[in-house]
């Protein structure tokens, strides 16, 4: 019998209606659409799979688990965050992660979550910032979510925001979006049942996305923040 209370908590955090700010980011999709690399549902499905397996699963998921186990220690939280900050991801993607981390903290502060207030105080004192996966792993347990629920909600919010970006960029339609989400669910189930990578194994291998967001010659205006 599933824990209905927890299920409802997870659904609330994972809902695109939740004001996390994630919808402002395409995670490199916009650049690949401009390049005519992602043009239809098949190439988009490849992109989505690459993002989930070689960025979210191989990196964010591990960070969530480490933050989840940090307890109430701000010192450890800062340590985890500095590790994320040191990853040689493209600045646009790093900035996206920081902005979403800060936005999530601010929303939970407004919702009255004590742990979020602690983070906000810490950030104000240290003049620093915090990454999205760190916030998710640190704050969601205080809502009662367990580690696997944190992973599932994080993955869901990551891939729904990318699918939403694809719809808004005109790459796929609304029904294709649901087909993508259904296909991803099977892949994601396997990922979520596999062992969580440890710190030394955390990696990001989305080469083409990284390069697309590292171009000095990016042309035209952008719809998304990254």
């Amino acid at each position: 019998m599933p824990n209905i209370a927890n299920l409802l908590i997870c659904l609330q955090q994972a809902d695109s209606f939740f004001p996390s700010g994630a919808m402002a980011f395409s995670w490199g999709l916009e650049s690949l659409v401009k390049d005519n690399i992602v043009t239809d549902i098949d190439s988009f499905q490849d992109f989505l799979e690459a993002q989930i397996l070689y960025r979210w699963s191989s990196f964010d998921r591990g960070i969530i688990s480490i933050a989840f186990k940090a307890g109430n220690s701000m010192e450890q939280l800062a340590s985890i965050n500095s590790f994320v900050e040191a990853m040689a991801s493209p600045p646009l993607l790093q900035e996206g992660s920081r902005r979403l981390g800060r936005a999530l903290v601010e929303v939970y502060v407004k919702l009255g979550l004590e742990a979020a207030k602690q983070i906000q105080l810490h950030l104000a004192r240290s003049s620093s910032f915090i990454h999205l996966a760190v916030v998710q792993g640190y704050l969601w347990p205080s809502l009662g979510m367990d580690e696997s629920e944190c992973h599932a909600v994080s993955a869901h919010t990551a891939y729904t925001s990318i699918v939403s970006a694809a719809v808004r960029l005109g790459v796929i339609g609304h029904l294709d979006a649901q087909r993508c989400l259904s296909r991803m669910r099977y892949l994601l189930e396997k990922v979520l049942l596999s062992p969580v990578p440890n710190l030394n194994d955390l990696s990001c291998s989305t080469l083409m996305v990284d390069i697309a967001t590292l171009r000095p010659y990016e042309q035209g205006s952008r719809f998304f923040a990254n």
Binding site: G28, S43, F47, A50, L207, M208
Partner: peptide, 25 residues
């Protein structure tokens, strides 16, 4: 710690030429 860069991939995935990973390169 200043910088950490970590890339890993299975060859069978590389050969799938996924958009976002290696493409056809």
């Amino acid at each position: 710690l200043l910088v950490r860069d970590h890339f890993n991939i299975e060859g069978c995935i590389w050969n799938r030429k996924l958009s976002g990973l290696s493409g056809s390169f």
